[in-house]
Simulated scan of single mutants.
Amino acid sequence: MFLFKEVKYKDILNIKALTIKNHQVTCIVGESGSGKTTLLRLLNKLISCDSGEILYQEQSLSAINSVELRRNVVMLPQSPAIFSGSIKDNLLIGLKFSEKQLVSDDKLSEVLKVVKLNKKLDEYAERLSGGEKQRVALARVILMDPEVLLLDEPSSALDEETEHTIIEALVNYTKDNNKTLIMVTHSKKIANHFADEVIEIKKGMLFKEGM
């Protein structure tokens, strides 16, 4: 799916060769400042490499329209935006931004169940806890139905038990719907338990690929 060839970005990343496979769960691990989030941001052109080439579905990212790419490869940052208004408003706004068809309340309630959030659609999103807001943002990404989900520490605001439950739900969603999940995580325990492939980054370089 993604292929890196001699990719360099500033003094942060230097990856000679890397393949991220389709329809798998890939976890990116490494110390803080090692370049994990930078790697994730390269995948949907939030930033572009200084040299080298990244291919997506055998096509160079440089030749793909950025807006079109981000409709298929959606990134959720570590501190996702929560907008004023209801949970429903926050769920629908991703579809509006990506110019996709809006969905029914039943579908919205269904996706809240995927992320284990037992809240009503008309509740104010800004009153939710940090972990609950993170789950609303996850649900928003799932609703956009991308080919690839890029998640940067998607469980950072959750306790360990809830983290395991949410990651398990995301992995099940990915596999049930033939999606690709690429996730930065601080937890090697989570990576080793759920990932099909683990990529370890150390000082901007590929330290280990595979299990």
Results as ranks from 00 to 15, higher is better:
Glu197Cys: 08
Lys107Asp: 01
Glu99Gln: 11
Asn172Ala: 11
Asp50Tyr: 02
Asp105Ile: 01
Glu53Ala: 13
Gly30Val: 08
Asp176Tyr: 01
Tyr9Ser: 05
Asn172Phe: 02
Gly131Ala: 02
Lys107Arg: 06
Lys203Arg: 09
Leu117Asn: 05
Asn192Ser: 15
Glu209Asn: 11
Thr174Leu: 10
Lys16Trp: 08
Ile12Lys: 15
Glu200Pro: 05
Gln78Pro: 11
Ser129Leu: 00
Gln78Ser: 13
Gly94Pro: 11
Lys119Val: 00
Ser156Leu: 15
Ala195Leu: 08
Ala169Phe: 06
Leu92Glu: 07
Ile64Gln: 13
Leu95Tyr: 15
Ser62Tyr: 11
Ser34Asn: 06
Val184Gly: 07
Gly130Pro: 00
Val111Gly: 01
Leu112Lys: 04
Asn44Lys: 02
Leu121Gln: 05
Gly210Thr: 00
Leu117Gly: 02
Gly94Leu: 09
Ile182Gly: 04
Ser129Lys: 00
Gln78Tyr: 07
Leu112Asp: 02
Lys5Glu: 14
Ala195Trp: 03
Val171Phe: 05
Gly30Trp: 08
Asn14Asp: 15
Asn90Gly: 05
Thr165Pro: 07
Met211His: 09
Ile190Arg: 12
Pro154Tyr: 10
Glu123Thr: 00
Arg140His: 07
Val198Met: 10
Leu108Ile: 00
Leu128Trp: 08
Leu91Asn: 00
Gly131Gln: 05
Val111Leu: 11
Leu151Met: 12
Asn14Phe: 15
Asn118Ser: 11
Val114Phe: 07
Pro154Val: 07
Ile166Phe: 13
Asn90Trp: 03
Leu91Trp: 01
Ser66Phe: 06
Arg140Cys: 07
Ile47Thr: 11
Ser32Pro: 04
Leu40Asn: 03
Glu123Met: 01
Tyr9Arg: 14
Ala191Cys: 14
Asn44Tyr: 03
Asn118Cys: 01
Ser48Cys: 07
Lys107Trp: 00
Glu163Arg: 15
Lys36Tyr: 06
Asn14Thr: 12
Ser104Gln: 12
Lys96Cys: 05
Met1Phe: 14
Gln78Ala: 14
Val148Asn: 08
Tyr9Cys: 10
Val103Phe: 02
Ile199Met: 08
Leu42Phe: 00
Ser48Trp: 01
Glu123Phe: 06
Ile142Tyr: 03
Asp89His: 12
Asp145Lys: 13
Lys45Ile: 02
Gln101Arg: 01
Asp159Trp: 10
Glu161Asp: 12
Val136Ser: 01
Asp11Ser: 14
Pro146Tyr: 13
Phe2Gly: 12
Leu117Pro: 08
Thr185Asn: 06
Gln101Pro: 06
Ala137Leu: 08
Arg140Val: 05
Lys120Thr: 12
Tyr9Asn: 08
Leu42Arg: 02
Glu53Cys: 15
Gly33Trp: 11
Leu149Lys: 09
Gln101Leu: 03
Gly33Cys: 10
Ser84Asn: 05
Lys208Gly: 10
Gly131Thr: 00
Ala191Ser: 15
Lys208Leu: 12
Ser84Pro: 13
Pro154Arg: 10
Gly204Thr: 03
Thr165Glu: 15
Val136Thr: 07
Val148Cys: 12
Val198Gly: 13
Ser104Cys: 13
Asn72Gly: 14
Ile190Cys: 11
Val198Asn: 10
Glu126Gln: 04
Asn172Cys: 07
Leu170Glu: 09
Asp89Glu: 15
Asp122Met: 07
Ser51Gln: 11
Glu147Val: 12
Ser86Lys: 03
Cys27Leu: 00
His164Pro: 12
Val25Tyr: 06
Gly35Met: 08
Met1Asp: 12
Glu197Lys: 13
Gly35Ile: 06
Lys45Asp: 03
Asp50Ala: 06
Lys175Pro: 09
Leu61Glu: 13
Gly210Glu: 04
